[in-house]
C-alpha cells in the first residue's frame, strides 16, 4: 500500500552531496554574490568610503588658513563638549522629539481612518499621502513659505475676513520651523503606521477576543491595537526622528537662521567657518547619537512586543 513511498526517501549525507547538487549550491551562491555586487559596490564607493574619510578627517587639525592640516589630534572631539555645541545638540534632540510626537499624534488617527475607510476612499486618502513625494522637498518648503509669509495666502485671507488687523508674523519663527519639519515628515510616519494597522485590522480575531473578554472598543484599542502596532510606531518614529535630527534647509529657510540645529551647525563648519575637522567630528557625534537611539528603540520594541509581566 503505502510502502512504496519509503523508497523515495533519500538519505542525505551532508558530507557527500551529489555533484549536481554541489554545482547547484555553487551556482546559487555565485548568483547571490552577483546580485549583491552592484549595491555593495555603490555602498562602498559612496557610503563607506566617505564615512571613513570623514572619520579620518575628524582626527586631523584645522589648517592655519582653514582646510585640513594632517596632524593627529583629539581636540575636535573635546570641542564637542563645549556648551555651545551641547546646546545645539540639545535643541536638535528636543526639536526632533517634539516633531516625532506631533507626527505620531496626527498620523495615527489618520492611518486608522485610512485602514477603516471603504476601498475607494482608502485609495484616495493614500493618494493624498503619496502626492507630496512627486515634488522636491525644497520646492514644497518654498511653497509653505509663500503660504505663511506676511503677505502670503494665509495672512491675506485672514485680513480679508477681518479676523486679524495686522498680518501674523509666522515665517522666520520657531513655529515655522516646526510646521515645515512636521509637514515634510508626516508621510514617513503615516505609511508605516498604515501598513502596521492594516495587517492588524485585517485579522479582527484579536479585537474580537478582547471584546469577548469584556473590553469596550476603547479598552480594546489601548490594550490590543496600540501594543500590536508598536512596530509601526517604532519604524515611523525612526523615519521621522533621524532625518529631523540632521535637518538642514528647513530651519535655514523657514527659521531664517534663528533656530540653529546641529545640521546647520555642521553645515557652517564646512561652508563658512572652514573648520572641516570639527564638522567631521560633529557628524560622527550625530551618527553615534542616532545609533544609540536606534538601539534603544529596538530594545523598547522588543520589550513592548514580547511583553513581560
Amino acid at each position: 500500500m503505502e510502502l512504496r513511498s519509503y523508497g523515495d526517501v533519500s538519505v542525505v549525507n551532508p558530507q557527500r552531496r551529489s555533484l549536481a547538487e554541489r554545482l547547484k549550491r555553487l551556482r546559487s551562491r555565485w548568483m547571490m554574490w552577483m546580485l549583491l555586487i552592484p549595491v555593495a559596490g555603490w555602498m562602498i564607493v559612496f557610503f563607506a568610503f566617505p564615512q571613513l574619510l570623514m572619520l579620518f578627517i575628524s582626527f586631523m587639525s584645522q589648517g592655519v588658513y582653514g582646510g585640513i592640516a594632517y596632524r593627529f589630534t583629539l581636540d575636535n572631539y573635546i570641542q564637542m563638549f563645549s556648551p555651545v555645541f551641547l546646546n545645539v545638540i540639545w535643541t536638535s534632540v528636543e526639536f526632533s522629539f517634539v516633531v516625532t510626537v506631533l507626527c505620531l499624534a496626527v498620523a495615527y488617527p489618520f492611518a486608522y481612518a485610512v485602514v477603516t475607510a471603504s476601498p475607494r476612499r482608502r485609495m484616495f486618502l493614500l493618494f493624498l499621502v503619496i502626492i507630496p513625494f512627486w515634488t522636491s522637498q525644497l520646492i514644497r518648503t518654498f511653497a509653505l513659505m509663500f503660504l505663511i509669509n506676511t503677505s502670503g495666502l494665509l495672512n491675506t485671507l485672514l485680513l480679508q475676513l477681518h479676523v486679524i488687523s495686522q498680518p501674523l508674523n509666522l515665517l522666520y519663527t520657531p513655529f515655522a520651523v516646526y510646521l515645515g519639519q512636521f509637514y515634510a515628515m508626516l508621510p514617513y510616519m503615516i505609511l508605516p503606521l498604515y501598513a502596521s494597522l492594516q495587517s492588524h485590522l485585517e485579522s479582527p480575531e484579536f479585537l474580537e477576543a478582547a471584546q469577548d473578554l469584556g473590553a469596550s472598543p476603547a479598552q480594546a484599542f489601548w490594550k490590543i491595537t496600540l501594543p500590536l502596532t508598536t512596530s509601526g510606531i517604532a519604524v515611523g518614529s525612526m523615519l521621522v526622528f533621524i532625518p529631523t535630527l540632521a535637518t538642514f534647509f528647513i530651519p535655514l529657510l523657514m527659521g531664517g537662521g534663528k533656530m540653529e540645529m546641529v545640521g546647520n551647525f555642521i553645515g557652517n563648519q564646512f561652508l563658512s567657518s572652514d573648520n572641516w575637522p570639527f564638522g567631521a567630528s560633529a557628524s560622527v557625534g550625530v551618527i553615534a547619537i542616532t545609533l544609540v537611539l536606534i538601539a534603544l528603540m529596538f530594545r523598547f520594541m522588543k520589550n513592548a512586543f514580547l511583553g513581560e509581566s
Partner: peptide
C-alpha cells in the same frame, strides 16, 4: 454588545494576544 454578554468564546485560531504571556 459583545463585551457585555455573559458568554466567552474559544476561537478557531485561538487568538491569544501575542504581546502578553500566558498569565496576562
Amino acid at each position: 454588545p459583545a463585551h457585555r454578554r455573559p458568554v466567552n468564546t474559544v476561537f478557531q485560531q485561538y487568538a491569544l494576544f501575542p504581546h502578553l504571556n500566558v498569565f496576562d
